[in-house]
Each structure stands twice: as structure tokens, then as C-alpha cells.
Amino acid sequence: MLRGTWRVKVGLAQMLKGGVIMDVTTPEQARIAEEAGAVAVMALERVPADIRKQGGVARMADPEIILRIMDAVTIPVMAKVRIGHFVEAQILEELGVDFIDESEVLTPADEENHIDKHPFNVPFVCGARDLGEALRRIAEGAAMIRTKGEAGTGNVVEAVRHMRRINRQIRELTTKDPEELYAAAKELKAPYELVKYVAEHGRLPVPNFAAGGIATPADAALMMQLGAEAVFVGSGIFKSSNPRRMAAAIVEAVAYYDNPKVLARISRGLGEPMRGVDIHELSEGELLQTRGW
């Protein structure tokens, strides 16, 4: 009997496809998410919009909060660690968290190195803004990639940019001659073997999800039509005026992302989505997506 194999780690990511992973900060919110059809929850102390507002150093959530959320639901529970903070990851693994997000939303603990994710039994998800970044994370052992987007803004523009870029770069690789792949690897700053895999298969070796600024059912369906295999919704649900309805509608929007008739029906009368921020109003220093490399 083998635990923590690559197949077992990527396997859980495969099971989450077509679903919505929701940020929650309390057991009550976790239950609302589960009842709405979330495939997993992300247990947090604060949602990204509040992290952005309150500033200071954002760290792994208190294990007490994470354990209470794990007790409240039967779906997988994820939690975030700071980039490079492998001890926070050891703690989350010990708690029995199902997936670890090495996340730019928290304040990085190491500005040069990400966590070596291979030795862990628990799978990791990491953010990426382009193909090179995605492949570097996979090389380190990430079993799932998500776009970084710009978390806590309720503005989907950055997630769209990152998803389009990654998929465009994948398409470009599939048109290259085998001898051009070495130079492509150099350009992408990614391992040749992974570059070769993407060129041959036309996709990443792990699921590719969308995250960062998704706030409405239409946003979620947009990301799916752009090629995301599932969607993370952070502040978008519990910062809206009717979280229960918004959660259920986003779940259905992801399941029926290619059916405008369903999308039109479920988008009606949802109340106020989260307020949102124009990306151009953020200064360079306020961007979360530039954390990590």
C-alpha cells in the first residue's frame, strides 16, 4: 500500500475538476459552502479582501480554526501557507488538511525559494501567472496549478490575463520542432522534461484551475470557457449580500459553464456581488501576484 504517490496527489486534484473551491473563515460558512455544492473549502482566518484591507503580515491560519472547519464538513479542506514556509506546511500536513495552497495571498516567508513539495504526502496547489512559473511549481512538486489573478479585488481581469497567457504559451509549445524545445525551456526558465511533456500533450501534467478575483457566476463560467478546469472563489461569496445564493449559483455556473440558458437563469436576482477594486487603482506594492517567481 503506497501513500502520497504522485498519482494519489494529482488524483485528488482530478476529483475537484468542474467544481468550486470556496474560501471560508468559520464552520458555519463551511457548511453553507458544502450545502451549496462546493467540492472543497479553503479554511482561512481572513478572506483575501480583508487581508488586503488590514495589511500587516498574513500567516497560516490558527490550527484551531482549521480543525473546527475540518470537523464541520465532509468535503476536502484546504489551507494556505506562506511561500517558502515549509514548517507551516508540516503543521498543516500533521493536522490532516487535504490540500495545501502555497499562496501569494499570505506574506512570503522566503523571497527566493518555494517549498520543496515532493517530500510531503499531502498535495500542494500553487499560483502562476505564466507557463514558466507553472512548470517551475510543478517541478517542485505542485499537484495542481491555479492562476494567481489578483486576490481580494473581485476583479477577474488578472485571472483572465494569466489563464490566457498560460494557454497561449501551451499552444505555442505544441507548434515547435523538437529541437526548439531546449531553447523554449531556457526562455521559460522551466525544466526541459516538463516543457517536452506540455509540447507533446498540449496541456499541463496537472489540473489547471482559475483563481484570483472571481466574483460572479459569469466570471466563473468565463474562466471555464477560457480553459480552467475548476474555480477558486475567495472573497466573492462571503463578501456578497447573499452568500448562500451566490455560492449555489457559482457552483451551477461552473457545472454548466457552456450553457448560456442556464447561466442567464442562475444569474438573476443574486443581490450585490462583492464591491471590487479597479486593478489600476492598486500601486505596484499592493499587488499580491508579483510575490513568488
Binding site: M1, L2, R3, G4, T5, R7, V8, G11, L12, M70, P76, E93, G96, V97, D98, F99, N121, V122, P123
Partner: peptide, 9 residues
């Protein structure tokens, strides 16, 4: 159990 108990056999 949870994901840490997932396995191949």
C-alpha cells in the same frame, strides 16, 4: 480517512 490516507494498492 482524509487525503493523507489515500493510497495505491
Amino acid at each position: 480517512g482524509r487525503q493523507k490516507d489515500s493510497f495505491e494498492a
